[in-house]
């Protein structure tokens, strides 16, 4: 992981496997209303795909492409989508997370607005869970050290 190694079999297999895992994660997210699944499970599967990339390739190279700053932005974006949907309902004159009132701004009836509001919540949960899971993994594998310290050590 931290040590550099190159294995053609592992890297090629990961390169073929990761898009399918991410597609499955989006499937789980999109069918979360009517079947088992949802934002949390989809986010975990998505995080597993990124962890697979981090394990198979060089950790510093992976962190340069998907670093801690990007992970923090994604985490805050997920929480913002969740809270923003709730506050939008609150500003439209209803309770927090009462999606039916979103039909005042969305061009749909309240039933469909409830459906889309639920999808927005799931999207926020998916993004936040994915970012936090990958961030926890990075903190565990690098002992919480930042990338500058890792590069100084040459690890």
């Amino acid at each position: 992981m931290v040590r550099e190694f190159e294995d053609v079999i592992i890297q090629t297999l990961c390169r073929f496997l990761v898009p399918f895992i991410q597609l499955y994660s989006l499937y789980v997210f999109a069918h979360g209303h009517s079947s088992p699944g949802g934002g949390f499970q989809g986010g975990c599967v998505m995080a597993a795909a990124f962890v697979l990339i981090f394990i198979a390739y060089d950790l510093n190279e992976a962190k340069r492409r998907f670093g801690e700053k990007a992970l923090l932005i994604f985490c805050c974006l997920g929480v913002f989508i969740y809270a923003g949907t709730g506050w939008a309902c609150l500003l439209l004159g209803s309770n927090f997370l009462d999606y039916g009132f979103l039909s005042k701004v969305l061009p749909t009836d309240p039933v469909k607005a409830r459906y889309y509001g639920m999808a927005m919540i799931e999207l926020g949960v998916q993004i936040a869970v994915m970012a936090v899971m990958v961030s926890i993994f990075l903190d565990l594998v690098t002992r919480g050290e930042h990338e500058e310290i890792l590069e100084e050590k040459g690890a």
Binding site: M1, V2, C44, V45, A47, A48, V51, I55, M133, I136, F137, L140, V141, R143
Partner: peptide, 13 residues
């Protein structure tokens, strides 16, 4: 899935 990866990442250190 995820917890096993976390435990292995901890064992690495």
């Amino acid at each position: 899935g995820i917890t096993t990866a976390f435990f292995i990442a901890t064992l690495y250190n």
